[in-house]
Amino acid sequence: MQGVVKVNSALNMRSGPGSNYGVIGTLRNNDKVEIIKEVDGWYEIRFNGKVGYASKSYITIVN
């Protein structure tokens, strides 16, 4: 499943599904990501070869 990031500035990509996990990357508005699965309001995603987590509130699913 594919998604597009929708933010005003930047979205942190984290090592786990929560804001208490470390930041491993930064996503920008309109970045395209691969959604692997949903975990407690977060998406596990793949972006630029990295796998991490981002809040699903800021990612819109596209077909």
Rank of each mutant, 00 (worst) to 15 (best):
R14D: 01
I45F: 07
G22Q: 14
D40Y: 08
N30I: 03
Y53S: 00
S9D: 14
Q2I: 14
V62R: 06
Y53T: 00
Y43Q: 01
N63H: 09
Y21Q: 03
L27V: 08
S15Y: 07
R14Y: 14
L27R: 01
L27A: 04
G16K: 03
K32P: 13
G3R: 02
G3D: 02
V23H: 05
V62H: 11
I35Y: 03
A54G: 07
M1T: 15
G49Q: 13
V33L: 06
K6A: 13
K32Y: 14
S57W: 10
I45M: 06
F47Y: 11
V4H: 07
L27K: 01
Y21M: 04
L27D: 00
N20D: 15
R14A: 04
G25T: 09
D31E: 11
V51P: 06
G3W: 03
Y58T: 09
G3S: 03
V4L: 10
K6E: 10
S15K: 09
K6H: 10
V62Q: 11
I24T: 10
Q2K: 07
N20E: 14
N8K: 10
K56S: 10
A54Y: 01
L11M: 11
S9P: 07
G16H: 03
V5Q: 01
I36D: 04
A10C: 06
V7S: 15
I36C: 04
R14P: 01
R28L: 15
E38H: 05
S19D: 14
G41K: 08
Y21L: 02
S9K: 09
E44L: 08
I45H: 00
N29E: 11
N63F: 03
M1S: 15
G25S: 10
R14W: 13
N8H: 14
V62T: 12
L11P: 04
W42K: 01
V33D: 00
M13Y: 06
V39Y: 12
I35Q: 01
S9C: 05
I45Y: 01
I36L: 12
V51I: 12
I36T: 07
N8D: 15
N48L: 11
K50C: 05
V4G: 02
R14S: 05
N20P: 03
K56M: 11
A10Q: 12
V39H: 07
G18K: 03
I45Q: 00
V23N: 05
E38S: 07
G22S: 13
N48R: 09
Y43P: 00
A54W: 00
V33R: 00
N20G: 11
A10E: 13
G41N: 08
G41P: 06
G18E: 03
K37T: 13
S57F: 09
Y58G: 13
I59V: 11
E34K: 04
I24G: 02
Q2E: 15
N20A: 13
E44D: 03
G18V: 00
F47H: 14
N63R: 04
Y43G: 00
V51F: 09
Q2S: 12
V23Y: 05
T26A: 07
V62E: 11
V4C: 05
V23C: 05
V51W: 10
Y21P: 01
P17L: 02
V5L: 03
G3Y: 02
N8C: 06
K37L: 12
G18I: 00
Q2D: 13
V51T: 13
F47D: 03
G16T: 02
V23K: 08
L11E: 09
G41A: 11
Y43D: 00
N29G: 08
I61V: 11
M1K: 08
Y58R: 06
G52K: 00
W42P: 00
R14I: 05
V5W: 00
I24S: 06
D31F: 05
K50N: 13
Y53R: 00
S55M: 13
N48A: 10
V7Q: 04
N20K: 10
I35E: 00
N48C: 05
T60H: 13
S19M: 13
K32R: 10
G22I: 13
P17G: 02
G16D: 02
M13A: 06
R46V: 15
K50G: 08
I45A: 02
Y21N: 04
S9R: 09
W42E: 01
T60L: 14
I61H: 09
D40W: 06
T60P: 04
K37C: 05
R46F: 15
N29V: 05
M1Q: 15
G22E: 15
L11T: 08
F47W: 07
E38Y: 06
K50E: 12
R46H: 14
